[in-house]
Computed example of a mutant assay.
Amino acid sequence: MAPTAVNGTGNGTGREHEVLHRAPAPAGVAVPAPPLPADLQAARAALRLALPEPNSKFSQDDEWCVVAEPGGAWGEYRFHDYDRIFQVPGLYEKIFYDVLGCDSPRFMVGLLSEALAQAGVPASTLRVLDLGAGNGIMAEELAAVGVEHAVGVDILTEARDAALRDRPGLYADYQVADLTRLPVGQRETLAGHRLNALTVVAALGFGDIPPAAFRTAYDLVEPDGWVVLTIKDAFLEETDTSGFGGMIGESIRSGALEVVRRERFQHRLATDASPLLYEGIVARKRGALAG
Score class of each variant (00 low, 15 high):
E76A: 11
L164V: 09
L111W: 05
R262D: 08
C102L: 12
W74V: 01
A42N: 04
G75C: 04
A273Y: 02
G246T: 13
K232F: 15
A256R: 08
A256N: 08
E76D: 09
G132N: 04
I95N: 01
E69Y: 01
L220T: 11
T157F: 06
L195R: 01
P52S: 01
A144E: 10
T239V: 12
N11D: 10
R165P: 10
V176T: 14
T9W: 11
Y171P: 10
C65I: 05
V184Y: 02
V151N: 00
D98L: 15
S59K: 08
N55E: 10
A46I: 11
V88L: 09
L112Q: 00
L289Y: 09
A203I: 00
I85E: 04
V200F: 08
G110A: 02
N135C: 12
R167S: 00
A191S: 12
G255I: 06
R165N: 07
P223G: 02
T241K: 10
G146A: 08
V147R: 11
A163V: 09
S254W: 05
A117R: 02
R44G: 07
V6Q: 04
S251V: 12
R261C: 06
S254E: 01
S113H: 02
G169I: 12
I209G: 07
P37I: 07
V29T: 05
V200T: 15
E53K: 05
R286H: 12
S59M: 09
S274H: 04
P3R: 06
A27N: 04
R215W: 06
R194V: 09
G14Y: 03
V29K: 07
V176Q: 03
R44K: 09
T157W: 15
A144F: 06
T189M: 12
L129P: 03
R84N: 14
A2S: 14
L182K: 04
L269T: 08
P210T: 03
L126F: 01
S56M: 04
R167K: 05
P24Y: 00
G71I: 03
Y278C: 10
D166V: 12
V260C: 13
Y82H: 15
I137S: 08
E250D: 13
G28F: 12
S124R: 08
N196H: 05
E18F: 07
F79A: 06
F244K: 00
L156C: 05
D208C: 11
K285M: 07
R15N: 14
A27T: 11
A38E: 15
D240W: 05
V221I: 15
N11G: 03
R22A: 04
F79E: 01
G192M: 06
G205F: 02
V200A: 15
P122H: 11
T230K: 00
P183L: 00
A150G: 01
G291T: 13
M247G: 03
I209C: 10
T199F: 14
A33P: 00
F96V: 02
G146T: 11
G287W: 03
S59L: 08
